[in-house]
């Protein structure tokens, strides 16, 4: 069985928000749109987004890590948001594991959003239906798009390619390998929701310089005569032995 998902590499995400607005841009005029904005040019502008990038600080100065953290629907394998939906508007697709909302069925009761521990669903205050990341279903299967474009908008946009997309049930996929080899993890594992989306942790490259790397025969200071050389007249073995 296929389970499509995003794997987000926090090791390279610079928090640029490209995934945020490219998502909005694709989806507002797409099958999941429109995505309304309220008070767009007024106080406290607010609107529907499927994906947001947040910033956290970990630790205390000077040992601070700044973590940029993109978050959209995680397409949980045990999605608590689905069974609670009274209308069946929220559903998880068998064929690819994408969790979707059927806007025509949704009554806008918001109950599913209560059942999502991740805050991944947002009601559209204009259309009054629940919305969320669709994994860009209207792109990834669109045969009119060239093969290389059949990817979620956010994945195509991401300048650091921090967003990987693929089938986490296929052990050979790029995403499965990334999860396996780079310590991919799920959010809030305590709830047993088994999010399909995973995150890859920060990794650090260190450089260790050994003392002996600093002492070298070809030190240019020798050429330029700045390393002290003993005077020729000073005693040496030449003076005391012969072989």
């Amino acid at each position: 069985m296929t389970q499509l998902a995003l794997v987000i590499d926090l090791n390279v995400c610079v928090g640029c928000h490209a995934c945020v607005t490219s998502c909005k841009e694709w989806n507002t005029s797409g099958e999941a749109g429109a995505m309304s904005d309220f008070r767009p040019y007024d106080a406290d502008p607010t609107g529907t987004f499927f994906n947001r990038v947040q910033t956290f600080e970990v630790g205390e100065f000077p040992n601070t890590e700044t973590v940029h953290f993109p978050k959209s629907c995680l397409h949980c394998e045990e999605p608590p948001c689905v069974p609670v939906c009274p209308t069946g508007a929220s559903y998880k697709r068998k064929e690819d594991g994408i969790v979707l909302v059927d806007y025509d069925k949704c009554i806008g009761c918001k109950y599913c959003s209560w059942a999502c521990p991740y805050g991944a669903r947002e009601i559209d205050e204009k259309q009054k239906v629940m919305k969320k990341c669709t994994l860009c279903v209207d792109r990834i299967y669109d045969k009119t798009l060239p093969e290389r474009d059949r990817k979620p908008a956010c994945v195509m946009a991401c300048p650091t390619s921090a967003r990987l997309f693929g089938d986490i049930h296929d052990p050979e996929s790029e995403v499965s390998k990334a999860i396996r080899e780079q310590g991919g993890y799920a959010l809030m594992p305590e709830w047993g929701t088994h999010p399909a989306n995973h995150y890859l942790p920060r990794r650090k490259t260190q450089l260790r310089i050994h003392e002996d790397e600093l002492v070298r025969a070809d030190n240019p200071l020798k050429i330029d005569g700045k390393l002290p050389k003993p005077a020729k007249q000073e005693p040496s073995l030449d003076d005391v032995t012969s072989w």
């Binding site: 005029s29 429109a34 995505m35 008070r39 040019y41 007024d42 205050e125």
Partner: peptide, 9 residues
């Protein structure tokens, strides 16, 4: 000056 809402499609 626009208040209200906007739903670009």
């Amino acid at each position: 000056q626009r208040k209200g809402w906007l739903a670009y499609f």
